[in-house]
Amino acid sequence: MGVRVREVGRTYRKGRRKNEEVVALDGLSLDVPSNEVHGLLGPNGAGKTTLCKILSTVLLPTSGTAEVFGLDVVARADDVRRQIGIVFGGERGLYWKLTARQTLRYWAALYKIPDARAKGRVDELLERLGLAEKADDLVETYSRGMKQRLHLARGLIGDPRLILLDEPTTGMDPVAAHDFRGLIGELRAEGRTILITTHDMDEAESVCDRVTLIDKGRVLATETPRGLAEMSGLQQWVEAETSVDVDGLPGVVGTERRDGVLRVRVVDAAAARVVIDFLLDRGVRSVRAVPPRLEDVYLDLVGRRGMGV
């Protein structure tokens, strides 16, 4: 097992006199098998970063246990640190007055890599992340996307078996984000385990083997993106460019119109078939069935829970 989290709780003390208690994780359990790309999804404040911090040994859990490759993150923190790489989004976490090469050489030393091996590894990572050309320019001259790639290179310097990515694509442009997805695929092919938190449902859907939805420090569901969509019992959508009225048809739950596109929500695939046939019979082209997307599931689960409280 790559990551094994059992009933982990974490509270923070807040307020002027440290007397306010914030529950960030509330008995959270999670298993990530080795070599899985696992997405951690949830709204702001759900506890994603808190979990990443606990797994990366910079935060102690208040209760429960967490293991990385069978090593307890509290009792065996030193051993855990050798196994993990951390990447977070944003511009901080870099020394702006160093070059990419200097940055990576420094962290290589902190990951106890002998100089001779570090040199080769740094060159390889610079190449791999497309930083080779600017390797000797100061970080402060880098674009946001380049800083992000340097973060990634830094996270990989110790040849980690588990990579923790906390919102790694915030601020990445679409091209960079696309390359990033390719990189995740490569890292998995190398046998690494990846835990990635993100806001971006499309990203999660395309890179993750499984995702866990969390909210208020608890797990709502863990599934494959596809399985989650099916399991959710969410209705499908039918989309068509038409003004034909389908409200009366069986299995139709609701309709909405946006920019000349009709979106029909139906209870299941059979109902979708009925609507599609109905529209095709009336000469409407460009009709398609759209399965529920991870985003729909997410909104449904998080939204529904929100209303229940």
């Binding site: 040994t57 030193d78 640190r81 951390i86 976490g93 020394y95 962290w107 990951y111 830094r154 110790g158």
Partner: peptide, 11 residues
């Protein structure tokens, strides 16, 4: 510089 956590998490 936001590197403290990275430093603590390094071996």
């Amino acid at each position: 510089s936001g590197t403290l956590a990275l430093m603590v998490a390094a071996p």
